[in-house]
Design a protein around this nucleic acid. Sequence first.
DNA 1: CGGTGTTGAATAAATATTCAATCAATCCAT
DNA 2: ATGGATTGATTGAATATTTATTCAACACCG
Lengths: 202, 202
Amino acid sequence: MSSHHLFPDEPAETRIGILKATYGALREHGYADLTIERIGEHFPKSTSLIYHHYDGKDELLRDFLSYLLEDAEADLGIEGDLGPAERLGVIFDRVFSPDDDPEAAAFRQAMVGLRAQATTDPAYREHFSEHDAFFRDRLAAIVREGVEDGTFRDVDPEAVATMLHATITGVMTQQSTADVDHSTLRAEAEAYVETRLLADGR
Amino acid sequence: MSSHHLFPDEPAETRIGILKATYGALREHGYADLTIERIGEHFPKSTSLIYHHYDGKDELLRDFLSYLLEDAEADLGIEGDLGPAERLGVIFDRVFSPDDDPEAAAFRQAMVGLRAQATTDPAYREHFSEHDAFFRDRLAAIVREGVEDGTFRDVDPEAVATMLHATITGVMTQQSTADVDHSTLRAEAEAYVETRLLADGR
DNA sequence: CGGTGTTGAATAAATATTCAATCAATCCAT
DNA sequence: ATGGATTGATTGAATATTTATTCAACACCG
């Protein structure tokens, strides 16, 4: 029976609210100190309401991970119609964005915290393996395009993409866990592309 | 019970035992699910004994972090008297070591788990900032040597070292949190050194 | 009414920490 | 040397605290 939606407060709306609260609590306390109560503190309604929308903490966290990864993936592949090198540049700009962008900092922190879980939780590892493959494929497609149109050297797109992604992961990790000069990083990433990929540099 | 006339049972010995147990529990459960009881399960003596040697969980974990980072740093800078490129190769070999080396896997996992804490805990961030600086300086020294003796191009050693370190961090992270082909990574790291650093290509 | 969203208080379970008691080795006074 | 006091290590059980989860009751809207 199609029971119809009321407007009191869109059920989906509330679920999103809980996810946002999870994001906020994660940002403030980190994954290891993430508790339902702390999530509740970032949630305008009652803490116990969470259990009306989720079976428990585990399910909520699993949903949050999907939500975050989907969001991250949605932001990919919208670099416009630039050349391969420029498209990599756009991705770098987004990933190596300044520390003072709180949005980006929160995102990085969430990714780092959740990813660490993947060391012991097979479900998390599965999620991140998929996400990494997705990201890597995007990068590989760009590199392949560059190789095909002659902008790039004749490298193995998969290998370069794997490396690029590892580096991106490392930069994000460093940015959210240590004090590092990211402007240096951005410039070096550019230099990597120039020397390793661009054919005209030689 | 071969009780020689040693002191009760080497206090330092016991402390090391607790740290090793922490290592084991961390490997099995990850940082977020690390509890004193689980550490106790990896410790031959009573769980409550931990409180005789440490003020509490926090102090133990802080000590563990120092212990791990010191250990990591001790392993650095022993590449023998090779050329700069080869010394980087040795470091890569150690860092990108195969998944089937359980020692290395455990170490990476501990690092990833503890590092994630640095997103919210200032003391952890401080530790990792120091550690990263240490590692980066080693790398920079190698690169500088290469630049000075003409093996490498005239790059900025600090910038390259920062980038290298970010990449190393990323590779370690990926290896312990997702399924990735590490032989590809190792080869690409070598290619990076060749194209970005080695001068002989010109 | 009947169902869904919402709440605060209650309960259950996990976790950290303390403690009194025991043991074994060392020290010290005879 | 010998034995009793002293000290630190060790234990299991008890307690305190935190955290997850449940539940009965209420509000609202169809």
